[in-house]
Write a protein that binds this DNA or RNA. Structure first.
Lengths: 209, 209
DNA sequence: TATTAGTAACTGAACAGTCAGTTATCAACA
DNA sequence: TGTTGATAACTGACTGTTCAGTTACTAATA
């Protein structure tokens, strides 16, 4: 029952996921405008017309891709944060390591890049992403850091600022992996960089008073 | 003698710069593929044909834009770093503040975003950017940090990692400004974030031993 | 044999790039 | 100083291509 096994198959329930998977790859490589529906369909093992049985338009396909690719990761992190009892520093280390691992390994890291790139062409989508996904993620981190500040574990920093500072090197790694990694002579040690980042950050947060 | 004053003017030497300026704006807003040559020409106060008197193709225009927009900033920072005598921490603060100011105010911050977005469609350009611009910038920072490590002012960290960590929040600010800032209810305080970042970073670098 | 997933040839619109023609400018001459 | 011919910057209508989206048909399934 593989996509390539037989040319003609009726598999109504498997198609959308396959098409979204293919779309992720092609959008990641080309961006929205330069991605051809023909390419996406080929990669999904169908013809162009088939995509239009499941998605209204190229734009609708793009939006579906964004919307379906976000909640799981956030939900997981949220659970981890809420269930944790212990020093905020330990939790921060845990969460950042987890996100770092995701960024180092998952295909999905291309999504932020696509959103940022297409923000001008799809303002509603950028707004959605900003107000739902980013706001939630930043909110989670901000709360975590505020907890540490309140308890006296961290210095009196602005939690919102520090949330962004915490995430920035991870995002940089994501952008690097999807844009420049192909030109690295030897693969860059993102995990090591992220570890260093966490060490420095926690040292900085706890230093002084 | 302004571009809009009279419809028809012969100004061979002024055109290329005006066209590049217009291209920066339109590419920044739309990305490469969705940008129309007609729009760029209109914004530059000429018609489409005129662009082709100065640039071979849309791609050539794009590449020219990238190439002309990079050296000055790097050169300035390089001079600052090489002429400075004093603690590495002070210099790091100076350089990051300077770049932060650039990012908070200049139109040029859209360029990294465009490059990242189009890396898949213009690999040679991405390679050029990576090997020339980024390598130089990272090299500068890496050297600066290595200096601090050698002198014992900083802890024994990996200078390459820390260079990236230092720059990451600034890049994040650039991406934010060009993609999501339009949706902020009140303008986000990037300068404050960057200041916090520098404080944390320096505290982290000097803490312990 | 009725239904519907899937196909592939087709259409129309958008747009990069071209080119024959137009007009500002300037040098040479009256 | 005014006229004119040569030059080249600039224009905008046109062309060919690419590609999103449609549709008339085909084949699998129930």
């Amino acid at each position: 029952m593989e996509a390539t096994q037989s040319r003609w198959h009726r598999r109504k329930d498997a198609r959308p996921a396959e098409i979204l998977e293919a779309a992720l790859t092609v959008f990641a490589e080309k961006g929205f405008a330069a991605a051809r529906m023909e390419d996406i369909s080929r990669r999904a093992g169908v013809t162009k017309g088939t995509i239009y049985l499941y998605f209204d338009s190229k734009e609708a396909l793009f939006k579906a891709l964004i919307r379906q690719s976000i909640s799981p990761a956030i939900a997981g992190a949220k659970e981890q944060v809420n269930n944790f009892r212990g020093p905020a520093g330990d939790l921060l280390r845990l969460v950042l390591t987890r996100i770092g691992h995701f960024i180092a390994t998952s295909d999905r890291v291309v999504l932020p890049k696509i959103i940022v790139a297409e923000a001008g062409n799809f303002p509603e989508l950028a707004r959605f992403y900003r107000n739902e996904i980013i706001a939630q993620g930043l909110g989670l981190l901000t709360g975590l850091i505020a907890r540490g500040v309140t308890s006296g574990e961290f210095r009196a920093v602005d939690p919102g600022h520090v949330a962004r500072i915490s995430i920035a090197p991870l995002l940089l790694a994501a952008f690097w992996r999807t844009s420049f990694a192909q030109f690295d002579d030897e693969p860059y040690d993102h995990a090591g960089m992220i570890e260093t980042h966490i060490d420095l950050l926690l040292a900085g947060l706890s230093a002084g008073g």
